[in-house]
Design a protein around this nucleic acid. Structure first.
Lengths: 342, 342
DNA sequence: ATGAAAGCGCTAACAG
DNA sequence: CTGTTAGCGCTTTCAT
């Protein structure tokens, strides 16, 4: 059985509250150097460690935050892996621990809400869709919350941390217009500009698409050559390949995928269908998830710094927990990664 | 402020314990259907959720387990990513949540031990070196523990879960001998057999190396052609390339890397030095971490099912927590993955 | 400078 | 069938 403050107190003939006071380094009251030493020694000797549960119950503060995502955790999920690594980093800086309440997908919103609100955590990092009822339940209950990556349009009050979708996409598109494969340079007409996005709508998707369209229009690209193509999910296997094929075989073009996962699936499909990536195509992604094993190609993409975002999210949440007012949106810069696909 | 059982009790004119009893579904005592209904309704109405801290404090059971690793969590760490995914899965099955105590690297063993023993967790999954003092501190303190992947030679009592290192390596080596690139077939003499392992010694490394050596000797491979090469870390950049080059340019050979990470680094180095992977070489790894983006090669390796191991580890830990005796070692099968590198 | 006491919210033994 | 009581281990007034 673990040794308690009470044990130490009775061994030393002191009251438990005195022991607690000393061990907490309470500076407001004066304590005799003598007693302090005795208590500290005894604590050391018995390997005393305060019970975090009791302390948290009393203080109403656990120093644990939770991560709630509606995605199944999966080693293949680069986004989650990267963000999680950053969160861990941030937790260390803030002296917080991280609780991963599991099975949060595949349970009812109500159950999830209960799990999240059972007193074990001080705040929650959210990565879920805007329609997720859990979000509003949490905010209504007053749980400190930071949304990761996507501002929730339905809950404008929800603070969030994002990558600079617009800035990153602008940089990427300007690169394509000025320095990309020569067939695409601003002067060249006849090049097709295709933006590939998923059927589900996220704020980040919209922001990227809009920045892309705007940048092209500002560069006087013929709007007849600009096209947004929707795929059901994130995988280009499901794309409308009749349309895509027509575009591809018609001449030079840029296939701008809304994120890296879609870009990789596009590269895969092109390789399968054409034997290799047609040289007159520029393919780009967005996220900065580079292959760390055997890169057959280095994707041209935008580094969102997802790990930094995870880390920063924790520090924001910590501020929120301690009652500070935090900005509605914190947007971190995104930077271009020049690969070989554009 | 959250609504408590006491609130509900006073609203209904009942005692708090009655409320608690009903909400816990205590079946030992009979409760009037009438009261039950009233309590349940009130709980529902007020969105009552029991405080997990108070409950845990009282019961001495938190239903949370911890993961302690001496590695820094990193999105690039395939092992951790895979195991973590499996752990999450296992936690769901056991109705446990997972606490990631952070900064466990970069703190003193004593601090880590304190963090792990502060009452928040019922058991710990370990992934660390055998010499880590935290391990013996935990076992001595009676904390239920399962070691992941590597049996700790110093603490034979420590239950662990492993992949079948020997079986997997045997299957892999036999494949090389019988079906691999034809220059290596059993009949062909003059082929070099190199096992590449790290300077640090783990049980899994030894088991793999021994199974490899044994299988070759049993196949009557000239022991003069068998060689174990040590690299400082896991990266082949640091290998003795003079020796390696001599072997490679001397004729056909198999370069058997102790794990996938080393194998990928070897493939990278070979590509850098020779322009491509020399056709007369067979390269193999061990782990089953395949590239999910743009595989330039598909590594021939052994699937250890790390996610399954993570999942199973949780179920073992759950048994251990509830007092059951669990086997010293649980070894899960490993299976061959036939790629293009051997 | 230290002690006594109240209580965080819950469970579980014991009464009745 | 339900209420009373006694804690779990800690923090935090309020006394002394």
């Amino acid at each position: 059985m673990a040794v308690t403050a009470k044990d130490i107190a009775s061994e030393l003939g002191l009251s438990q509250s005195t022991v607690s006071r000393i061990l907490n380094g309470d500076t407001r009251q004066r304590i005799s150097a003598e007693t302090r030493r005795r208590v500290l020694d005894a604590a050391e000797k018995h390997q005393y460690r305060p019970n975090a549960l009791a302390s948290a119950l009393r203080k109403g503060r656990t120093n644990v935050i939770g991560l709630y995502t509606n995605q199944a955790y999966d080693a293949r999920n680069d986004f989650l892996s990267n963000v999680l690594a950053g969160i861990q980093h941030g937790c260390r800086a803030e002296a917080l621990d991280l609780l991963l309440p599991v099975g949060t997908h595949s349970r009812t919103p109500d159950e999830i809400f209960r799990t999240l609100m059972d007193g074990r955590i001080d705040g929650v990092l959210l990565h879920t869709s805007a329609e997720d009822p859990v979000v509003s339940m949490l905010t209504q209950a007053g749980m400190p919350v930071i949304a990761l990556a996507d501002p929730a349009p339905m809950a404008p009050a929800l603070p969030c941390i994002t990558a600079d979708d617009a800035g990153g996409m602008r940089a990427l598109t300007e690169f394509l217009l000025s320095n990309g494969r020569h067939m695409l340079c601003a002067g060249v007409s006849g090049a097709s500009w295709v933006f590939i996005e998923p059927a589900f709508q996220l704020t980040s998707v919209q922001r990227r698409r809009d920045a892309w369209c705007d940048t092209l229009r500002n560069a006087d690209v013929d709007s007849g050559m600009i096209r947004v193509m929707t795929i059901p999910d994130e995988d280009c296997e499901q794309a409308d390949w009749n349309a895509l094929q027509a575009l591809i075989e018609n001449g030079p073009g840029a296939l701008c995928c809304w994120n890296d996962r879609t870009a990789y699936s596009l590269l895969r499909q092109l390789t399968l269908r054409y034997g290799s990536i047609p040289a007159h195509l520029a393919i780009t992604g967005f996220d900065g998830f580079l292959d760390n094993k055997l890169p057959a190609h280095r994707l041209t993409t935008v580094d969102c710094g997802w790990a930094d975002i995870g880390c920063r999210a924790v520090s924001l949440l910590a501020s929120s927990i301690s009652g500070e007012v935090i900005p509605a949106e914190t947007c971190l810069p995104a930077s271009l990664i020049l690969g070989t696909t554009a």
